[in-house]
Design a protein around this nucleic acid. Sequence first.
DNA 1: AAAAAATTTTACCATTTGGTAAATACACGA
DNA 2: TCGTGTATTTACCAAATGGTAAAATTTTTT
Lengths: 211, 211
Amino acid sequence: MTKQTPPAKKPSRIQTRNRKMILDAALEVFSRHGYRGTTLDQIAAEAGISKPNILYYFDGKEDIHVTLLNRLMESWLDPMIKLDAAGDPRSEILSYVQRKLDMARDLPQESRLFAGEILQGAPRMSPHLERHLKPLFDEKCALIQRWIDQGALPPLDPQHLIFSIWATTQHYADFDAQVQVLASHASDTHAQASAHLAQMFGALLALPKTP
Amino acid sequence: MTKQTPPAKKPSRIQTRNRKMILDAALEVFSRHGYRGTTLDQIAAEAGISKPNILYYFDGKEDIHVTLLNRLMESWLDPMIKLDAAGDPRSEILSYVQRKLDMARDLPQESRLFAGEILQGAPRMSPHLERHLKPLFDEKCALIQRWIDQGALPPLDPQHLIFSIWATTQHYADFDAQVQVLASHASDTHAQASAHLAQMFGALLALPKTP
DNA sequence: AAAAAATTTTACCATTTGGTAAATACACGA
DNA sequence: TCGTGTATTTACCAAATGGTAAAATTTTTT
C-alpha cells in the first residue's frame, strides 16, 4: 500500500534532487489551486519534469500530496513545541505569537496548503491531526492552565486562546488576497500586524492590578 | 456575455423553485470541495435535478459559482454595515464581533465558500472585493479612527483590528474540522468562543484608567 | 568498455467532466 | 381540450486528466 516507487535502499543523488524539485513544484501548485484544482501536468510544468517521470518518483497525485502534508507537519508544530514551561508565561505566549506570525510570512505556501486541507474537512489529514497535533495541543493547553492556576495569567480558556493565535496569525497568509486589496499603505503589513497582535494579546494576558 | 438562460421576463414558479434548489445544492458542494473539486454531476445529485436540466437554468458551472458569490456578498457585509457611528464605540465593536461569530455558526457554508475563494487568490471575486468590500472597509476604518481620535478607544490600528475580528470569528467555521478534533468538551464551542472573544476584544478596547 | 541498473521519453488509454442537440413530456391559458 | 411555450430527459461529444507500458537513454558498476 505504502509502496515507495524507487524500490528501497538509499536514494541516489538524482533521486534526492528530483524528488525535491517535484515536491517544491507541487507545493506551489497545490497551495494555489487546492488538491482537485491541481493537475499532474501543472506540477510537471512547474518542476520542469515530464509527467511520466514524476510518476516514476511518486505513486500518484495523492502520494505527492500526502508527502507534502507529512513534511509540513514538522515545521508546523515547531513554534508550539518551543513554548517553554520554564519561561515567563506572558512572554512565552507573546513570542509564540511572533513565531507563528513569522511563519505565515516565511511559509505562506505551507500555510495555504494546510488551510485548504482543513477547509475541505481534512480528508487526507485527520490522522495527522489526531496523532501529532492533538497531543501537543492538549499538552500546551494543560501548561497554560497551570500558569493560570498559579496566578501567572488571568483566567481564560486555553483552547480558545490558542485558536485565536492561530486564526490571527495565519490570516495574513491564508487571506493574503483580501489583505492585499484592503490594506492601505501596505508598505509593511507584517510589522503592523506584529505590533497589533502584540498589543491585543498583551492586553488579554495582562493581570489586573491588585493594589 | 452575461446571458440569462431563461430568456427574460418574470421567472415562473418552477423557475424560482429550481434555481433555488440548484443554488442550495451548489453551495453545499462548492463549500465542501472548492470550485475545481466540484462537479456538475455532484450538484445535480445533491439537487435532485439532472445535469442538462441544471444547464437549462444556468450558463454553466462558473455561472452558478458567480451567482453564489453575488448572493453571498449581501449577508456577508451586513454585520459590518450595522456598525453604528452613533452608538457607543466599545459596545458597537463588541456586538460586531458577536454578529460575525453568529454568522460563522449560522452560515458555515457561506463562510467556507468565501474562504476558499480568497485562499485561491480570489480569482472570481476580486471585483467584488474592490467594489463592495473595500469602500465599506475604508468607511468603517475611518469611523474607528475617529473614535480613537476622540479618546473613546485606545490607540490601535483599525485595519488590523478588523482583520483580527474576521480571523477569529471565521476560524470557527473555516477550520471547523480542526476545531472538532481538538476541542475537548465540545458541548458548546460557540458559547465558549463567544465568551473568549468578548474577553479578548474587551481587554484590547479597554481604556487605561487615568486616575 | 560492457553489462547492469537507473532514469527519461514516447505513445498510449480509460475515465471523468463540462457541455450540447434534439426529442419528449408537461403546464397552462384560450 | 387543444395549442403553445416551458421544462426535462436521452443520447451524445470533445477535451482534460490520472495513469501505464515499453522502448530509449543515461548513469553506474564491474
